[in-house]
Computed example of a mutant assay.
Amino acid sequence: MSRESECREDVRRLKQYADELERSLDNVQSLCGTGTWKGPKSERFRTEFSGHKKQIKDAVANARTAIDKALKRVEKEEEEKKKTGTGK
C-alpha cells in the first residue's frame, strides 16, 4: 500500500470517527431535553453541555481542516516524487 493510499484510509477513518462524535453529541442533546429530564441539575447540565458541545464541535471542525491539509500535503509530496523519479 502506498503512503498516499494509507493516508487516504486514515483520513476516511478519522472522518468517520468525527461523524460518529458529532452524532453522539446530537444524541446527548436530544436525550437531555426538557421533556426528558427536569429539575435544577438538568438545567445546569444543559447549560454546561451547550458550552462543551460547541467546544467539541469546534475541535472536530479544526481536526477536519487539519486532516484535509495533511492529505493534500501527502498528495503533493507523492506527486513531486513521481515527477522527480524518487518515488517507489
Rank of each mutant, 00 (worst) to 15 (best):
L14K: 05
L14V: 04
L14F: 06
L14M: 12
L14I: 04
K15T: 13
K15R: 15
K15M: 15
K15S: 11
Q16A: 12
Y17H: 09
Y17R: 07
Y17M: 10
Y17L: 13
Y17W: 13
A18N: 10
A18K: 07
A18I: 12
D19H: 13
D19S: 14
D19G: 15
E20Y: 15
E20W: 11
E20A: 15
E20S: 14
L21F: 07
L21Y: 03
L21Q: 05
L21M: 14
E22A: 11
E22S: 11
E22H: 09
R23V: 08
R23M: 09
R23D: 10
R23P: 02
S24C: 15
S24E: 14
S24I: 10
S24D: 14
L25E: 04
L25V: 06
L25W: 02
L25R: 03
L25H: 02
L25C: 10
L25P: 01
L25A: 06
D26T: 06
D26Q: 06
N27R: 15
N27L: 15
V28A: 04
V28T: 10
V28H: 01
Q29F: 04
Q29A: 07
Q29L: 13
Q29E: 08
Q29D: 08
S30T: 10
S30A: 15
S30P: 03
S30G: 12
S30H: 11
L31W: 06
L31M: 13
L31A: 11
L31I: 04
L31E: 08
L31F: 09
L31S: 13
C32P: 02
C32R: 07
C32M: 14
C32K: 08
C32I: 12
C32G: 09
G33D: 01
G33K: 01
G33A: 02
G33P: 00
G33M: 01
T34G: 03
T34K: 03
T34A: 07
T34C: 02
T34I: 03
G35V: 05
G35Q: 09
G35I: 04
G35N: 09
G35E: 08
G35K: 04
G35W: 03
T36F: 09
T36P: 02
T36W: 05
T36H: 11
T36I: 12
W37C: 02
K38N: 09
K38S: 12
K38W: 08
K38T: 10
K38Y: 08
G39T: 05
G39K: 04
G39E: 09
G39N: 07
P40T: 12
P40R: 09
K41T: 13
K41H: 14
K41S: 12
K41C: 13
K41D: 13
K41P: 03
S42Q: 01
S42Y: 00
S42L: 00
S42K: 00
S42H: 01
E43F: 04
E43I: 07
E43Q: 08
E43D: 14
E43Y: 06
E43H: 06
R44G: 03
F45P: 00
F45R: 00
F45M: 01
F45E: 00
F45T: 00
